[in-house]
Design a protein around this nucleic acid. Sequence first.
DNA 1: AACTAACCGAGACGGTACGTCTCGTCTTATG
DNA 2: CATAAGACGAGACGTACCGTCTCGGTTAGTT
Lengths: 200, 200, 200, 200
Amino acid sequence: MSEPEIDERRRSIGARRNPATQEAILDAAEALLIEEGPTAFSIEAVARRARAGKPTIYRWWPSRGTLLLDIYHRQKPAVIHADTGDLKEDVTLFIERLIGYWRGGAGQVFRQIVAEAQRDEATAEKLREYAAQRRRQTGALFERGIARGEIAPDTDPFLAAEMLSALAWHRLLTDRLDLNRPEAARIARQVVRGLQTREN
Amino acid sequence: MSEPEIDERRRSIGARRNPATQEAILDAAEALLIEEGPTAFSIEAVARRARAGKPTIYRWWPSRGTLLLDIYHRQKPAVIHADTGDLKEDVTLFIERLIGYWRGGAGQVFRQIVAEAQRDEATAEKLREYAAQRRRQTGALFERGIARGEIAPDTDPFLAAEMLSALAWHRLLTDRLDLNRPEAARIARQVVRGLQTREN
Amino acid sequence: MSEPEIDERRRSIGARRNPATQEAILDAAEALLIEEGPTAFSIEAVARRARAGKPTIYRWWPSRGTLLLDIYHRQKPAVIHADTGDLKEDVTLFIERLIGYWRGGAGQVFRQIVAEAQRDEATAEKLREYAAQRRRQTGALFERGIARGEIAPDTDPFLAAEMLSALAWHRLLTDRLDLNRPEAARIARQVVRGLQTREN
Amino acid sequence: MSEPEIDERRRSIGARRNPATQEAILDAAEALLIEEGPTAFSIEAVARRARAGKPTIYRWWPSRGTLLLDIYHRQKPAVIHADTGDLKEDVTLFIERLIGYWRGGAGQVFRQIVAEAQRDEATAEKLREYAAQRRRQTGALFERGIARGEIAPDTDPFLAAEMLSALAWHRLLTDRLDLNRPEAARIARQVVRGLQTREN
DNA sequence: AACTAACCGAGACGGTACGTCTCGTCTTATG
DNA sequence: CATAAGACGAGACGTACCGTCTCGGTTAGTT
């Protein structure tokens, strides 16, 4: 929490992007959003807190949405998906980890991205792409289930993935991230049981 | 939707709310949102279009969120749920009708409510309540399915309902309302099949 | 100054002016101006404090200026001018009493009348008339001086009166009402000595 | 006063005050006050007429009073006082010139300054300082008269100066600037004659 | 070694919207 | 018909941010 106060001021490092400046701006934006809430988040406030000029921000992030997306992706951990060999367990873990990750501040950022996407088409497009990519990743879980014979071969793995994502979004957007392991398991059971072949 | 242009100007009708004014404001707000998009929607612009004073708006709708909620509820049709006796059909119809309803302008309004709820806790609370109420209504679909023996008695009807709602929200918020009847049926099948008892 | 609070609410007393209402409005206006300052004075605030309807105020005082003038005249004492037989003494007393009177709250009201007159021609006209009348009254002081042979017969008594008034206004409008008897006497001397005939 | 209409729009010239903007704002404010009267004068209207943003005005003139004072001082001519060697003539010229100056639009501005000072203490303080300074300048007239032996050495030159100023204010504030040279001379005579030593 | 080019901070600028205040008018319900 | 109440259209208040612009200073690469 202690502010160094040593650096005094960042300067240009020549005709190229200064990484320290970019860091400082992302740090400031993230801190503002998480510590002071969404209404405190504005380009003006970010510039103030980062001790950066507004044009510097606009140079690299032409809109609020791009800045939010950068904050989110910077903090995003590499992989969330487990592969335990048991689909129900994999799904349970996926839900648990995603919600847990969102509880730790990242959710606050993602909520704002979704909100921004409702006003700005460019952000919407980026969000749509991101969601599609996540759907492919999570869909792999179900594809493995099909391969193992756990669930019916005519299952749509991406629709199943979307249903999980959608539920998580819904909880996030209605501020109901108080989801414990038993509830995650119940969700997994209810989603998967229907997808199972009759023999299991 | 037809603009009379005859009335010239609304006046006070004494020390009580003038219904014509309220109508005009809601009309203006709805039209702005749907015709000119979310960025054009501001209290200022609503007042201008409705030829109303800003304090008149703030008197009755203390925040942007309350105004959005009023627009949404004013245009909301009474009932969406069918009762055909077949759960899969009921679910298909529910999805189809909800998405269809949202395609007709109401979705634009609801998206903004969700976005606003990410910034304003009061709106979030209202949205949470509304979602819970909808969950209870849609849950009744599944309760009937349990009663009929179509699905397992240990099914959580409100979780099932939430999954449908969540999927619809997700499509709305990523601007993917191009959902036809076959896709609605596939969703219904994938949700319900798992909920069915083994005998069916 | 004590607020009764007993009457709870004044009602119409039939098809005629209710004196209690007028009193309450003037009381409220005066109290607001003196207790809370000129910025707190507005028709809105007066109505609130007097528990009166705004139209009631507008019915009897069509503008802010007329209300201010009524407040001022209501509290105005009958006569200020002395007749001691000595002009210098009469002038000294006039200045002393006028300033003293203004120090006691009335000055606050009169300042606002002058200010209002700079914006509203109707108030300006009323103020002009009032000033002319005062000039005639104070001029009589100097006319008596001429009659007594104290000052030159070609003296303009109304110009002399205006100079005294003007000086008092100037002190009031620059918030310099800290004028003691010696200073009043010095003013009187400086004004009168020049007006005296050579013999005195 | 000529409106170029060529410039299209003023822009920022970097992190420093743009003189063209300041000029345009003062021009607009002065023109509004003189051409359309005091009720038309508002920060909003000034911004509109100057094609300036409201924050730009508030940045440099934190209150209405400071803006009015700037308008007045911008148009103020350097010196008003003559030194003819004859006190009565000097006084006559002072009155004549001051009133003449005020008749030409500046009076309209000064009236509003006085009015504003009755509501806002900051403006009042500035006005008080200005009046004191003017008193010192005009007082010099009478000091020269004392030095020349024209008037009594125990005369208070600043009180005499204040009496002239006060009379001018009084005429301005009651909209009676129709003062011709004979009247100015009569005032000068009435003021000075009394101040003269007996020998003259 | 001088020059160019882009970066950086700062902050002014024209705007728009915010949410609040007062204006003066209107209508009702109550007496 | 006077009154209290308060809704209404209008518009000004002073503030916050928007996105753009120019400035002066910095540092790297290119001549």
